[in-house]
């Protein structure tokens, strides 16, 4: 939880967030972003002023429920269409560089 008043965000935290969101940022970008985010977070911290303890959150603008589709097969793309945007492909599959982590 951010402390009362104004949260701060440093370069280390930005670097961590960049790793989480898989963005390669160079040092100058990290510095610049840390400064800007610090200012932005200072501004959005205003949100904590609102007393809303008993207020339910709104996740959807329009209150709809139970929107489903019947279990019916529809045509797929052709493999050529599916692969049309691929940066690299091999044997009808998307080719990617070696993967580090096993999920």
């Amino acid at each position: 939880m951010p402390e009362a008043g104004r949260p701060t965000i440093g370069r280390e935290e930005v670097a961590h967030l960049a790793r989480l969101s898989r963005l390669a940022l160079d040092d100058s970008e990290l510095d610049r972003l840390a400064g800007q985010l610090d200012v932005i977070l200072g501004a959005v911290a205003q949100i904590s002023e609102v007393s809303a303890a008993d207020v339910p959150p709104t996740s959807h603008a329009v209150p709809l429920e139970n929107v489903t589709r019947p279990d019916v097969v529809m045509p797929s793309l052709t493999p050529a269409q599916a692969l049309s945007g691929a940066p690299s492909e091999e044997d009808g599959r998307f080719r990617v560089p070696r993967i580090l982590d096993e999920e």
Partner: peptide
């Protein structure tokens, strides 16, 4: 941070 930021913002959305 979720409750303080995203969660709180969604409550403000309700308000």
């Amino acid at each position: 941070y979720y409750d303080a930021y995203y969660g709180q913002a969604q409550k403000v959305r309700t308000l």
